[in-house]
Design a binder for these strands. Structure first.
Lengths: 229, 229
DNA sequence: TCAATTCTTGACCATTTGGTCAGCTTTATC
DNA sequence: GATAAAGCTGACCAAATGGTCAAGAATTGA
């Protein structure tokens, strides 16, 4: 007797898709919590509601499963990393980036922690990505920031340190949620909290780096109001 | 034949102290890299240059060893968390805190990562600390920040989010060193880099939160110059 | 000097690890 | 309804895990 109900889905490969999804989700949590070595297929299988053999059947090996999760997270990442040009409004760009980053950490907390765990462990599987795509992206942004600084649209801060500042502070609320909750005594961080945090970070970064709108911009859109005061 | 040279040291307990130190140092690195579950006593023993049995002889169990490392790191932590009063100079206090935090992450990177790994894993061993000492400390600081805001010495930002911002950004350079190095293409972060980062963070936080010196302060000390511009 | 204490470590243990595989059942295709 | 393909999984494996222990070696203190 099959445990899964033979419901509606009739498309080919439906079973595979459903089981893979269950495994990926379970694995993301376990890897995030215990790291690559500390995670066990047994626990992943249990959380996915499947026997261990079945996990191996779909994923091949622990390593392949892990790499697949990393790649999925990097893909989400890349979807955010749209490029910018020196002609863009700095206030708008920085605000949008902070917002997007927080939203990503929020919508995929396990993936975010998985990434953090990988980096903590020395990034054995991500060296290439860090030194390739991500590095190019950072240098691209840094170049634009420098042009903004030259045009007086922001203070001449080191663009790389600025990027890392945004990075770390936004990441923090996903990766260290336990710490934030423990210290604040909350049970969860709700959407209002996140909105507060987002506005706070935008305000501090924009004001702290003296980021200005280029001449000719009149009405600041809603999303940035917190940054003016 | 003993492997350790029977040199100078003649004080009682010298052997124990030396071996425990070797074990603790090795273990800090391994736990930081692989997390509690992922770390193996075998590897710790190897890095300490001792047989596994010897590690157990000194530390009792994996769990005890881990807890001991956490406590050691928390003790270092606590040494930084000196209390402040509303009469202090906000600029001075914030700058000193950022500096101290960076210095700690810098001087004990493995311990810092160990802490991060513990939090990522849900802080199973640190719940008490987070909800006790650390929470009290945060609330204490938050109260002072609020008074500063009332006296117009800083913007009325949420003090808790400010503390977390400082926390996360300073921690980042220890925990995510791999990422920073990979992306910047450096081999190491030297003292000059760290000084740059420190000044940048101090500047952004102080300017970004509109933190001012109280009336009556004339000459800003060297350490803060970067924050004025 | 000699007994007491501390230190050292290989052998060993039960359990868990990632992974294989053969044989089964279910689903898809014509 | 038959054949093929995909899905399923318990039994099994070698290796590694945290931990115990006994017996000997080195150090200490009187």
């Amino acid at each position: 007797m099959a445990k899964a109900d033979p419901t509606s889905e009739h498309e080919a490969g439906a079973i595979r898709r459903r089981n893979e999804q269950a495994i990926l989700q379970a694995a993301e949590g376990v890897f995030a919590r215990h790291g690559y070595r500390g995670a066990s297929l047994q626990e992943i299988a249990r959380q996915a509601g499947l026997p261990k053999s079945n996990v191996l059947y779909y994923m091949g090996s622990k390593r392949k499963l892990y790499v697949r999760l990393l790649e999925r997270m990097m893909a989400r990442w890349n979807a955010i990393l749209d490029s910018i040009s020196p002609e863009d409004d700095p206030v708008e760009v920085i605000s949008a980036f902070i917002r997007a980053k927080i939203r990503l950490s929020r919508s995929h907390p396990a993936g975010s922690r998985l990434f953090a765990s990988e980096i903590l462990g020395g990034a054995p599987f991500l060296q290439e990505y860090l030194q390739g795509e991500l590095r190019d992206w950072v240098e691209n942004r840094a170049a634009v920031f420098r042009q903004w600084a030259e045009r007086g649209l922001m203070d001449p801060v080191d663009p790389v340190w600025l990027i890392f500042l945004i990075w770390s502070s936004t990441q923090h609320y996903a990766d260290f949620e336990t710490q934030v909750l423990g210290i604040t005594g909350r049970k969860t961080l709700d959407d209002d909290d996140l909105e507060d945090i987002t506005r706070f970070l935008i305000q501090v970064v924009i004001k702290g780096c003296g980021i200005k709108r280029p001449a000719g911009v009149e009405t600041p859109p809603e999303s940035i109001q917190a940054a003016q005061h």
